[in-house]
Design a protein around this nucleic acid. Structure first.
Lengths: 339, 339
DNA sequence: TTTGTTAGCTTAATCGTTTTCGTAACTCAA
DNA sequence: TTGAGTTACGAAAACGATTAAGCTAACAAA
């Protein structure tokens, strides 16, 4: 590999001059600069990142921790979309994305924080994880620039999707379609779940929808078996709901299966709605009415905030950005005659 | 950050001794070694990867290029599963995964190879991409350790799923279910497509299934609009097929929609089959009959092969591993009376 | 006693950059 | 003419690790 020294020899100048020329320092003459750059290009010079990082303590690397309950955020539609967008934005600003080692069960492994320091990440992005995990807390509380997705820490940058308005808008839409008996199968306890659930209750109350306790059930996100069971419970009620909200689109299909197994039709016999707006939801029958999250914006905004923080550490501009979703009107919620 | 020098001061030995002790060199006394290790741990020492890499030319980093037609492999079920498995295996062996910058439209960007060199990857894994891309070819032909997924290059390690046996087994199953009129909507031209298609023709011939030209159509992978159209064409034929194979599970849903819009039922009126075995296929109605790829094995095998190659470069043990899939028997292929 | 061997450390060079400080040459106002 | 100020460049010290080579004391063998 060609180094600064090689270039300096060819150009007949010192290593320092080459370095400064390539980095556009102002104390190098224009002609010299151009000449050096030309030679560098011709020789196929590539900076040695290790050497540079050693000197500057900047790796231009960002660590990401995208882990879901099942152990990986990669096969999770919502988070892989967010990550994808995050990656594109970060790369366009010259940062590369590395996974923070999340393989917890190996000897001699490091904590998330240690691993991040070891790799020399300039900053880290966290999403989709158990934010209660002591290792995660340690990482967040550290002096590394951090951005979290869908979770708020004190004094830390965060980008969250607006679950409150999401559920509110969805429920309002369902109300307008004439539904007055709406059940909510919500996800496992978490900050996201709490927001959605309380928004559900508040909106219901405002609209004058009564929500019997048995209309609210729990099923883990993306757990089709759980929603299958829960849906059956709801359908067995003496006074079953006319519409069911599910934790997410994927989980909704567990419920849809339960409904269909009973020979009921969607939406003629019962209406359903999901959350997330995964690609499959737009394609499958019935087109699922859902809240489409703006993963593109969430990801790119998270990258932006993190990189801004990295590059201007002075201004500890802690910001918590809320990204609204939008109701995607599918075919899974029927219009009811309001009696 | 605590460095070797800090430790050496505390221990009253030279920096070299500390380095050797921590790396288990044989010319350091047992007691000294233990003592140094203890102190290092107490002080929370973490090796500086940049410094180490500068000296050893090993970053313990692997670059991955997982890009699909749409620009990202992250939102692609099959590839994100493979990547996930790849990542776990690599991490368990002490390697971290970084994306090779694939954002092509930015000023001053590097080629894949340059970027890989710049980052100092010890090796790279490629999947899901346009292997004809000159940049990809350049990368593969370079002196970097490489493993490819689902594509064979000369003299390069590769892990491929067995498309030949996959299509063969699937078609045999369909034959046994009594189908004699089988159409194949295949993906866009590529090595994978070629293998599948020729396996389709060979198996059909062996089984004595006649395949009229109009039964074979093309639709891009994961393109539900294209399969929608193609399926309609097939259904409009004077002698329509009794079963349709689709490029992949996701694309199959485009066809399924077309079928349903005509009021036809699956599998009573027409049978369908997909390919890949994505999670959604197992859950959605109708349970899709498909070829389930062993993404877990493909990913971990790719990581294994690559790391073996990295760590023992002498033995240019070029291996091309073929991973078979298995037919997942859903409910989308009906048993026909053989007349 | 001398020589050789070995275990256990240390010295010092090196990897490729960045950056501070110096300095030579030149300009220009006084 | 002189001193100050500017411009353009170089020398050298870091950054934190690895490692070849050298040194020393202790001990064994002759």
């Amino acid at each position: 590999m060609v180094s600064l020294k090689d270039i300096s020899k060819v150009c007949g100048v010192s290593v320092a001059t080459v370095s400064k020329a390539l980095n556009n320092h102002s104390d190098i003459g224009e002609e010299t600069k151009e000449y050096i750059k030309k030679v560098a290009k011709e020789m196929g010079y590539l900076p040695n990142l290790s050497a540079r990082a050693l000197k500057t303590n900047k790796t231009h690397g960002i660590g990401v921790l995208f882990v879901d309950e099942a152990g990986s955020g990669l096969t999770h539609d919502y988070f892989s979309s967010v990550l994808d967008s995050f990656k594109r934005t970060a790369e366009s600003r010259g940062y590369d994305i590395t996974f923070i080692n999340s393989c917890k069960n190996r000897e001699n492994r490091m904590t998330y924080l240690d691993h991040s320091r070891y790799r020399g990440f300039d900053g880290v992005a966290l999403a989709c994880i158990d934010f209660e995990d002591p290792e995660v807390v340690e990482l967040v509380q550290s002096d590394l620039p951090v951005v979290t997705v869908d979770y708020l820490f004190n004094n830390r940058n965060a980008v969250v999707s607006d679950n409150v308005s999401g559920v509110r808008d969805l429920l309002e839409y369902i109300y307008e379609m004439g539904h007055r008996k709406v059940a909510y199968i919500h996800g496992a306890p978490s900050a996201v779940t709490t927001n959605r659930l309380s928004s559900f209750y508040r909106t219901a109350e405002r609209l004058g929808i009564k929500v019997p306790d048995e209309y609210v059930m729990e099923a883990a996100y993306r757990d089709t078996a759980a929603t299958f069971t829960a849906t059956n419970c709801l359908l067995d009620l003496q006074d079953p709901p006319t519409c069911i909200l599910f934790p997410d689109d994927f989980a909704a299909f567990g419920g849809i299966n339960a409904i269909r197994e009973r020979g009921l039709r969607i939406p003629e016999d019962i209406s359903v709605a999901g959350y997330d707006g995964i690609r499959a939801a737009e394609i499958l029958e019935p087109r699922l009415t859902t809240v489409k999250q703006d993963t593109e914006l969430i990801g790119s905004m998270a990258a932006r905030k993190l990189i801004d923080l990295i590059e201007t550490p002075k201004t500890t501009l802690v910001e918590q950005v809320v990204i609204p979703g939008s109701v995607f009107e599918g075919k899974s919620v029927a219009r009811l005659e309001t009696k």
